[in-house]
Design a protein around this nucleic acid. Structure first.
Length: 108
DNA sequence: CGAATGACAATCT
DNA sequence: TAGATTGCCATTC
């Protein structure tokens, strides 16, 4: 009602949803964007990159193709790979997670 | 302050 | 099927 018009509000929602992804599952930029009522996955991506602090499990967010972020902010995609694997995520290769096993969505 | 770019994805042709 | 276009806007130059 008051802050929802503020641009950073959307930003905060991205972090909130990202934290709601259960361990052992991953989600995509597009799903988050659509969960917030928009198609602009770019904002979701920028939101996560803006979060230089490890406050958010941004490693659980990948592209629709299951590809890890090419410019992952903290430690690079190697960190993202390590964290995901630590949570039980299966990988097709070092840059692609197995969405067929772990694709979590906010839009049932 | 204006233009260009970007952790993307859906839709159209 | 693959390629090009559009949507959307925050951050950076």
């Amino acid at each position: 009602m008051s802050d929802e018009n503020h641009p950073t509000f959307f930003f905060s929602q991205v972090y909130a949803l990202t934290r709601q992804i259960p361990a052992g599952s991953v989600s995509t930029y597009g799903d988050l964007a659509r969960a917030l009522g928009t198609r602009d996955a770019r904002r979701v991506g920028h939101a996560l990159h803006a979060n230089k602090d490890s406050s958010t499990p941004c490693h659980r967010v990948v592209t629709q193709a299951g590809r890890l972020a090419p410019n992952y902010a903290f430690g690079g995609s190697l960190e993202q790979y390590a964290k995901l694997k630590n949570e039980g995520i299966s990988f097709l290769d070092r840059e692609h997670v197995d969405l067929s096993q772990h694709h979590f969505t906010f839009h049932p």
